[in-house]
Structures are given as structure tokens and as C-alpha cells.
Design a protein around this nucleic acid. Sequence first.
DNA 1: GGACCCATGTAAATAGTTACATGATTGC
DNA 2: GCAATCATGTAACTATTTACATGGGTCC
Lengths: 183, 183
Amino acid sequence: MSLKHAILGFLNISPLSGYDLWKMFNSTVNNYWTATNTQIYRTLSELAEENMVWYEVIQQEGVPNKKLYHLTQEGKEELISWLRTPLELPSIRHKLLVQISFSNLLEDEEIIAILETYMKNIKEKLNSYKHGNQEEYLSFASSERERFLWKMVLKNGIGFYEFELKWLKESIEEFKKMEKIKT
Amino acid sequence: MSLKHAILGFLNISPLSGYDLWKMFNSTVNNYWTATNTQIYRTLSELAEENMVWYEVIQQEGVPNKKLYHLTQEGKEELISWLRTPLELPSIRHKLLVQISFSNLLEDEEIIAILETYMKNIKEKLNSYKHGNQEEYLSFASSERERFLWKMVLKNGIGFYEFELKWLKESIEEFKKMEKIKT
DNA sequence: GGACCCATGTAAATAGTTACATGATTGC
DNA sequence: GCAATCATGTAACTATTTACATGGGTCC
């Protein structure tokens, strides 16, 4: 499970509550893994049982109390050993490609509408990426080396969406060209 | 669930057995959704219960009998209505990016080793994509239009891996450059 | 004789989503 | 007065993976 290790990784940088972690997993810049609050709270309980993390309850006024989670030595060792394990290529799950594969059943306009809607979504995502709080996020890096690594991750995110955008643009153009020839 | 719709999509093109579908989902060219045999057989049973598909048992000699699944009218309607629904951007789950984010805990050589191993995997994947049975696959298209759509999907697959490869190359280079400055 | 292909599946575990619940505080 | 933020969680469901089981046929 990568969620476990992602949580251990965040806690290694600083102690956090479940709520903090949830915000992290939902911020644009940490966009390599997503998780719902349900999943995070459950996983934190599991990690606590396995002695990978421990928590202190922070009394707060006005806002609810919170559990601040810390990494244990065991957790840190588990994290490092996972970081060292080489990864297989992940299996791809791309719903849009499934739709396109079988969309010969649809009319031209319908196909174009699907592609354009998707393109709009990607453009928005790219925008929130580029005009988001990248610099702020990078400023939390503890060293030039860490900063470099985080930048590398950001570049992958942006690059991926740019690739998708380019592919969509070209595909739509070609599709429209084909349409014209036909008529 | 997209697996259900992907199966309906395949069955719309031609009747298939669970085993045939399993091979499809694991072939390089149909690389936009993966599924294990377990999942496929269970989903087929569910689809049969929902009257989206029906099957005939084909008696065979030498090899075991098989169930040949066909799409029903209901299944076809469900497929078309799903094809028309616009999709949200999928949530990303990229383990390598998780590792990189936290790999400030590792030594330089370890980081490079992880990146290079991953790069090797991608190169292999790209190779099997490019020298695979693309043309054969495309020849099953029933029309120029369907062929175009399938090509579009293939281009996305290849383009994605090429992007990842480029990103890895640049990252490794830059990382090594940084190493030199430090020493 | 061992590995792999054909063809089906069950059992069990893990991972992830959706909906719901609580309750005070802050801002429009 | 209503929505959003902070903060925690449960229940139920859906999706996915891993391991196991069966049994004949073919290929080296």
C-alpha cells in the first residue's frame, strides 16, 4: 500500500493531524496520490496499531481537539526500506481511452463534445497547477536537495497534463479534418 | 464502474469468452484498462444477472468448454448511454512520485538507481508497444472511423510513456549535475 | 518430466468511494 | 440564516489483487 508510505513520508517531515494530511492529499501540488478523509483516518489507526506512528491529543479552544501524529523509529525504518524498493510500472486506468475505443457507436458531434469537455477540465487543472501555491510549497523544503526532488515531482504533474492537452488538441483537429473529407 | 463498460464495449464488437476478454485486457495495445481473470469472470456473471449480456456454452474437444458471451439490447443501450457521459479527470496514483517526494532520506546513488530501474521498465514497455502487434490490432477495425479512434488511443499510450521517459532522462541528468557541483 | 496454454472459477484480503453524523466558529 | 472551516469518525458498499484449485493438451 502506498497510502501508508505516503503518510509515513509526510509525518517524517513534520507531525500532522489526520485533517492536515487530508488537506495535503487534496492540494494540487501534492498531486501524485489522492485519498479521502475516511481512508486517511482508517490508515492512521492502522499505522498506530502497528507502532509505525504515535499521537498526542492537542486540546484546542473554539475548534475541536486534534490528534497530532508522530513517526516512530519503526515507522521511519519502514519508510526508508520502502523507498529503496524498486517499482513495477503501474497498470493504467484511463476511462477516457475506454470511451474513445468504443465511441464509434456515437455521432461525430458527440465524440467531439466528449473530447472538448475533457480538454476544458485539463486546462483548468493546468491553470490551478501553474498559478497555484507552488513556490510556497517548495519553500517548505528543508534543503536544496529536497527542493530539487519536489520540483521534479511538480514537473511531472505539469508535463503530464500538458501532454494530455497536446494529444487532445491534435486528435480533435485531425478528427475534424476527417469529417470534412467525408462530407 | 468502467470495467463493466469496457467489457460491454468489447462484446459489442464481437462475442467473446471470459478468457478471450482476459487476454484482451492484458495485451499491450489495449493498454488503457487492466483486469485480472478473477475480476473479469465475476463481472461477467454480474452482467449476465443484470441482463446486459447472455452466453451460450460452446462444446470443445481437447480444450475445456467455454462460455461465449453476447451483448443484449439492454447492454448495448447501457454502453451507449455511458459513452455519452462526460468524465471527470481521474485521480492520480503514481507511486514513483511518492517515493521521489520523500527520497531525500536516501543516498544519491540510491535515488539514481531507483530512477534508472524505472526508466529501464519504461523503455521495455515502449519497445513492446512499438514493435508489438499494433497493425494487426488496427486491422480488426470495422471502418476507417473506428481505425482512427483506435489509433488515437494507441498514440496516447505511446506518447505517455515517451513523456515519462523524457522526464526521467532530464531529471537524472540534472540530478547528476547537481551532485557534481556539491563535491 | 516440466512448463505453458486453454478455460473456468472460489476465497480471502486489501484498497478505495460514498454517504452520513456531530458540533462549535467564522464570514457574508 | 446559510455556507464554509476545523476535526473526528462510522457504516456500507464497490473495486482490485493475490493466492489457490482443476484438468486435459501441447511443446521441448
